[in-house]
Amino acid sequence: MSVCIEFENVSYAYPLTKKAAVKQVSFQLETGKCYGIIGPNASGKTTICNLMRGLCPNFYNGTLKGKVIVCGKPMTEWDEAEISVRIGYVFQDPFAQVSGIKETVFEEIGMGLENLGVEQEEMMRRIVEIAKEVQVDHLLQKHPLALSGGQCQRVAFASVLALNSDIIVIDEPTSQLDPEGTEDVFEIISRLKAKGKTVIIAEHKVDLLAEYCDEMLVMADGRLLAKGETRAVLADPALEENGVQIPQVVQLANALAKAGKPLGAIPVNEKETMELLEQWRGGRDDGAGSK
């Protein structure tokens, strides 16, 4: 295993705030895995993302204690231009990600590539390919500010995907997307993982995270409440006690257990749930005869 991002006892407070946004957080993320960050509003998810990308404290200022290490190198030693390519970052607010200086969606998606000096032909090819992937290919000639909410979020995601970074930090990429578009984003993420990328995604849609992420980081009030393999983390009762949303299928398993008819295991996705439910119903139907 190779460590990709490491937090060593990291605490951080934004300027002019009394309360730290992130408190004594330590963890290691491995290369090539997909990590989900969950937790209530204001629990520190975005701040963790900002810290990984170096925006806290380099852009926001504020006070940082502890150490953030990316690819073996402390954040303090990274060059801003270099890390902005190594880590692709999709901001939480899609409307803020769009630059506002480009005339077309095409140019907007290509902006990062242009800055990198990628050749014209290669650039065109990549823009078109990615636009298809996030289904904005019919919008390439539109003005980036003349889009619907979900279209804007797709463009924001596309402009980061275009960079082809090794590490991709995505902060709530589906908040404005229709349900199919939301699943498409997760499909794209699993393809990124298949290509060996490390993906970190902060989301409230815990059902989808449970399905796609290898590991979960749970934030509550600035602290890392839990980190580990998705299944183990989601079954932890401490989550609900701390106001962290848990997947519907886990809630279903909990409700059946409470009613004295446990499913036998805790499913983390719909497929597992269906299998367990089929067995569960089969088991119950045995005595009753036919279905």
Binding site: E180, G181, Q248, V249, L252, E270, T273, M274, L277, R281
Partner: peptide, 14 residues
């Protein structure tokens, strides 16, 4: 491009 709620979908599948 809409999916029903998770519970609805499970009920439909069953």
């Amino acid at each position: 491009k809409v999916k029903p709620p998770v519970s609805t979908h499970i009920a439909q599948e069953l």
